[in-house]
């Protein structure tokens, strides 16, 4: 067999393997979603979304958990956004490339890989106990904000890096200050990329369970939170709670809850993809 034929064969084998791997992922996901849909879809109606929790499976709804998740999302965004973007701008545009800043950089990348339960422990100690926020929505939001901060910082820096150097040159050459260049050129030009990163980070936050359990989020809350200091539950905790009950009715509820949670993450990811595509076109 000559070399060309050999290479072609290798190519074919690798292609087949690639197709198999891709299909494996898609098929598994499809089976999972399919079985969840079969179990849960008939349970989803307006009542399911607006009902408070209940001991009777058929009367129980996800309202409090859904509202808890919404509260968490909004507050986490408010906390993580300015801090994350600010840090990224500093590291990317202001900090000189010293040993200290490269140390910071490595640390931030490492933080993105720390298991989320560790953030829960940190949040429990600092926000719940030391600052005495209690097991409130606010404490949960601060904890999740910490958790997604590295992702926000890294993706914002990537987005800033992607703005061509020539844009910075042009702005500085016209007499713009650093802040003018950042605020008038770099942020608008990278907003799509920054937004994508933030949405992906938030879609991770909305699925987080462990750190919120650690800081004391409840599985059963009678009412939706009405202030940042209220106790709360979130969708994944509610789902977990239902699954752990013996009655079959709650299993159906859990499946229905999973559908809602998946829907939220899919929509968020969809929005992220939309912004990314729009943003990529800008510099072509």
């Amino acid at each position: 067999m000559n070399r060309i034929k050999k290479n072609r064969l290798k190519d074919q084998i690798f292609k087949a393997w690639g197709i198999f791997c891709t299909l494996l992922g898609i098929v598994l996901l499809a089976i999972f979603i399919g079985s969840i849909l079969v179990d849960g879809i008939q349970r989803i109606d307006w009542d399911f979304i607006t009902n408070l929790p209940s001991r009777k499976a058929e009367r129980a709804g996800i309202y409090t958990a859904l509202m808890g998740s919404v509260w968490i999302l909004v507050l986490t965004t408010i906390i993580a956004l300015p801090v994350g973007i600010g840090a990224a701008i500093y590291l990317e545009e202001y900090a000189n490339k010293s040993k200290l800043s490269s140390l910071l950089e490595i640390n931030i990348s490492n933080l993105a890989g720390v298991p989320s339960i560790i953030y829960g422990l940190l949040g429990l100690e600092i926000f719940v106990r030391v600052i005495q926020m209690g097991s409130s929505v606010l404490a949960g939001s601060f904890t999740l904000a910490l958790l997604i901060l590295p992702i926000v910082i890294v993706s914002t820096r990537e987005a800033l890096k992607a703005v061509p150097k020539s844009i910075r040159d042009a702005s500085y050459a016209l007499g713009a200050s650093k802040w003018q260049t950042v605020s008038r050129q770099l942020l608008p030009a990278s907003s799509g990329g920054i937004l994508t990163g933030i949405i992906l980070a938030l879609s991770r936050a909305v699925g987080e369970t462990a750190p919120l359990i650690v800081i004391g989020a409840l599985a059963y809350v009678p009412f939706a939170p009405s202030s940042p200091m209220d106790e709360f539950s979130v969708l994944p905790i509610q789902i977990f709670n239902w699954i752990s009950r013996p009655q079959h009715g709650f299993e159906v509820n859990a499946a229905a809850g999973i559908i809602i949670l998946l829907l939220i993450t899919f929509v968020m990811n969809g929005i992220a993809v939309y912004f990314r595509n729009k943003w990529q076109k800008k510099f072509k």
């Binding site: 020539s166 042009a170 702005s171 500085y172 050459a173 016209l174 713009a176 200050s177 008038r184």
Partner: peptide, 28 residues
């Protein structure tokens, strides 16, 4: 830098309108 204009090798307009490009130096 307001006193010294610079033109680069590769044209580098801002991804903005023609008007905004020319007005930028004055606006800042």
């Amino acid at each position: 830098r307001k006193q010294v204009g610079m033109v680069f090798q590769k044209p580098n307009p801002f991804p903005k309108s023609i008007f905004e490009n020319v007005a930028y130096g004055l606006k800042i």
